[in-house]
Amino acid sequence: MIKVSNLRKTYNGVTVLNIGNLEIPQGESFGLVGNNGAGKTTFFSLLLDLIEPSAGHITTNNIQVNKSEGWKPFTAAFLDESFLISYLTPEEYFYFIGELRGQNKADVDALLLKHEDFFNGEILNKKKYLRDLSKGNQKKVGIIATLIGNPKVIILDEPFANLDPTTQFRLKKIIKDLADDKNVTILVSSHDLAHTIEVSNRIVAMHKGEIVKDIKTSSETLKELEEFFAV
């Protein structure tokens, strides 16, 4: 589904990302781990064509992302709060995204109903704009919005951060359910090794812009990663 070849990103002569070759097949649940500055967000931003690669390219479904916009209809992402429209209510935001993805109000409502317990009664019909929600609740909105319109590629940057334990648990279930769907490729990054291992069937560890580990998840994975990151 996603092919990365000789991708490099340099800022003022400093290389922040350098991936020689990486393939993510369709249906994979892909976990990206690494310390601050490892290049996780940079990689996701390149994947979404939000920054320009210094060299190399990424193709999604054989579409080169920085040449054509054809990847947009089947890709959904939530990287940070700049993916939220602060002056809308959560409902309006969901419908807005829904309309852009060709979903009608009923489709969106059905999806929201399905994830009612994820919202924990704190999001819908609260008469609040997104800007007035707490960080954690904003994140919930952003995550569920990526599910609208059954995208084939879902990209979530640090989805577990700022969430309360119950919601983290529920989120893991949502991601695992998506991972079971063989049409959906899901990419998740996190600082939290345990969470990532739980939801991903493949883990890639990055360090200073390079891929340092690429492993299929097994019972040994956590130990292996912990050894790597322990200094």
């Binding site: 979404l48 939000l50 947009k72 992402a77 700049s82 993916f83 852009l100 993805r101």
Partner: peptide, 13 residues
């Protein structure tokens, strides 16, 4: 501007 990355990654012509 506050949500330009959303606009640029959504299905928008």
């Amino acid at each position: 501007s506050a949500y330009y990355s959303l606009m640029m990654s959504q299905n928008i012509q």
